[in-house]
Every structure is written in structure tokens, then in C-alpha cells.
Design a protein around this nucleic acid. Structure first.
Lengths: 214, 214
DNA sequence: ACCTGAACACCGTTCAAGT
DNA sequence: ACCTGAACACCGTTCAAGT
């Protein structure tokens, strides 16, 4: 009976009279990706299955394979959407680094997703380029390699922090002093970024004070 | 018929006469973990299923749950074995960092495994402690936080490099200049480690030459 | 102490066929 | 252009029961 109902709703002869307002259940690549990203925030990467995404769209699992050739391709698309949200500003290295981290934090398990996807692809080339530009402007040595090192640190750090956040939230917090664990990790991030941003020999002998603002 | 045969082989009445040399098919926690670690090297983390591990041990999947309460616990055990192989030497920071990275590289997907497992646990506390000790000996500022930053960098970097290695090996190498990609990443690692090992303001106004030993 | 057998509630993916 | 239905070859986990 329930399936009869469904059949009836869907059998709206797909012909000329089917105007946009009658179209409800059919999706495009964009719609699938957006639904998947929303679902990611609700259930997390481990529980983001093709079947669940399909269920959210009121569609059979096999329908997703018209839009994406595999789950891997879908995940790569999501990773690209996350890294694409990095603002492209003429900021200094710590600011760019923080904006990359914040983009990863925008979605649940975002860091892990981008990390898993990064190796295969040109995804997060955006992030790498932004870091390299900022480094070049600051006059740092070896800006290209330094950008890669910064990106690896940001991805590793963000992945670990995001995991820890999720574990602490509905997990076993057996440690009494876990209150400031995130605050401590924030200082670790700043320390790491600053160390990777400027070090080494060349340019300006004065170490501490660059930056002429105020 | 095949299952009859199996039944016959296993029904060696479990009593006193069952001396060690007759015992063949029964396992302990250690044996399961070793088999799983060996299988990890063959098939990789994505294909390391409980059912495959059981198959390797000629045992039903459910048998594994006598030794480990979940797959997660088994994986955590493997991660601990990998980090436990880090040599405990009085070496300088780059040397310690490299030995941690090499321990992660000892097994296929070792970095990813440890990274996934690290958040939950005290695993890789070994690595963190080793780094902190080395930093303290070097007189670096904020050794505790710096150790965490170094560990995050090492885990992120090693995970990315290991993924890339595997992708390049039997994957689509569409890039012409991928030959020196690993060499380049090795230089990135050294740069990152050195930057994180020494930087910052305090101690000795002269930036480059510390080192009072010898 | 360690394992089997059977079941439960899931997976990703393919493909002919429908509209 | 987009989807269904059905199938294939898998998953992790539980639990009574066996030896």
C-alpha cells in the first residue's frame, strides 16, 4: 500500500505539462551534494552511507550513481566544497592558516574528510596556494615547501582536534582536567603556525617585530 | 562436506591429552593482533575487516569478539603496537621526529591508523613524551605544547605521504613530474620539524647558535 | 578458555528496465 | 534525464550453544 502510494506520486507522466512547480522528487548533482553535506553534519563521516543519503532524498541508493560514479567521487566533491569556502584575502600567514582551519571546522569531520581526500587530488590546492601567497608576501624562505608543511600541520591538527571534540562531547570523559583541553590545543595551533611561518636564516635580522599596524 | 571435515579437525577433545603440539587452531589476543597487523600490510586499512582477519586465522568472525570487544579496540591495539616500536633514545628533536615517522611507515596505513586512534586515547603518549624530552634537553620554549604541535605535524604529514605513496603506486599517475614527489616531501618534513623544534623568543638573544654541549 | 552457527541490521555497486 | 527493483558480494556485532 505504501509503495502503491509512492508509485502514484511519481508516475506524473514526465512529459511537456510537467512544469517546474510539479517537479519535486528529481535531483541534480548539486542537490545530491548539498543533501550529503547536510547529512554529514548530522551523522558524521563514519555514518554517512550512500543508502542514508539516498533515504534523505527519498530515492533508491542506486539513483545516486547517476550523479556520482562512486562514493569516493561524492566525498571528493564534498571536500572540494569545504576547501572552496576558504576566503581569498591578502592576509598574513597566521590569518590565512586560521581561515583554512575554520573552513575545515565548518562541517562535522570536515578535516578528516579533506585529509582523506587530499592525497588523491588537486583538492585543497586552493588552500596551498593561499598559504604560499601569504608566505611570499611575508618574505619567508622556501615558500612552496613551507606552504605544504603548514597545510600538513593544519590538516593533522584540525583532524585530531575535531576527533577529540567529538569524543569528548558524547564519549567517556574520564579525565578531570579536560575542561581546557580545547583552549590548550588552540595555543598549540598558534605556536605551530608561527613557528612554521617564520624561521630560518634569511631576511630581517630582527626576529620579533615585523608588522607596522598601530 | 567441507564443514564436516572442519568439524572433525576441531573436535580433538579439549581435555588433558591435548598437549601443545596438538593445539593448532586456537588463538590468544596476541596471536589475533599479530595476524591482523600482518594482514594490514597486505590489504591496507580500508580492506582490513573482522571477517578477513577471522578468515586468515581459520576461525569464524564471531570468535574474534572473545579476544577484542570491538573492531575499534582491535585497531587501537594495533596502533599501540606501532607507536610502541618507537626507539627511546637520548637523541635530538629531528632524530626523534624521524624515528616516530619511520615507526608509522613500518606498516601499511600506519600513520592513518594511529591518527584515527590517537584522539580517543593515550596511545602515542609514548611519542609525545619522547618529543617533549628531546625538546626539554634542547632548551626550547614551551616544550609541552611544542611536542603536541610536532606530533600533529608528524601525523598529518605521514598520513598524507603514505596515502600519496599508495595512490601513486597502483593509481592514476597523470602527472609527468611525479618522480621527485617523495623526495620533495622529505624536504618538507625536515623543514617542518626544524621550524617547530626551535623558534620563538626566549633564551639567548642570538638566534642561530645555541648549543653549549661540547 | 576459546570457538561455532545462525541470525540481525546494515554496507557499496551494477544493471536492466521504467518514465 | 533521472530513477526503480532486484540482485551480488560484502560488512560489524550478538548470542546461545558447543568442546
Amino acid at each position: 500500500m505504501s509503495f502503491l502510494n509512492t508509485v502514484h506520486l511519481n508516475s506524473v507522466h514526465y512529459t511537456e505539462w510537467m512544469t517546474p512547480e510539479y517537479n519535486s522528487t528529481r535531483h541534480d548533482r548539486e542537490g545530491v551534494a548539498r543533501a550529503a553535506l547536510a547529512l554529514l553534519d548530522e551523522v558524521g563521516l563514519a555514518d554517512l552511507s550512500m543508502r542514508r543519503i539516498a533515504g534523505r532524498l527519498d530515492v533508491q541508493p542506486s539513483a545516486l550513481y547517476w550523479h556520482f560514479s562512486s562514493k569516493q567521487e561524492l566525498l571528493a566533491d564534498l571536500a572540494d566544497r569545504i576547501t572552496a569556502s576558504i576566503p581569498r584575502a591578502d592576509a598574513d600567514v597566521p590569518t590565512v592558516a586560521r581561515s583554512i582551519r575554520d573552513a575545515l571546522f565548518t562541517h562535522r569531520d570536515g578535516a578528516e574528510l579533506v585529509l582523506s581526500t587530499y592525497a588523491l587530488g588537486l583538492g585543497s590546492a586552493t588552500a596551498q596556494a593561499a598559504l604560499e601567497d601569504a608566505l611570499r608576501r611575508s618574505g619567508a624562505a622556501d615558500p612552496a615547501q613551507r606552504a605544504v608543511a603548514l597545510l600538513h600541520f593544519i590538516l593533522g591538527h584540525a583532524t585530531l582536534v575535531q576527533q577529540r571534540m567529538h569524543a569528548d562531547s558524547h564519549g567517556a570523559m574520564e579525565n578531570g582536567g579536560t575542561l581546557d583541553v580545547t583552549a590548550g590545543l588552540d595555543r598549540v595551533f598558534d605556536l605551530g603556525i608561527r613557528a612554521l611561518a617564520d624561521s630560518g636564516e634569511p631576511l630581517s635580522a630582527a626576529p620579533t617585530l615585523r608588522r607596522d599596524r598601530a
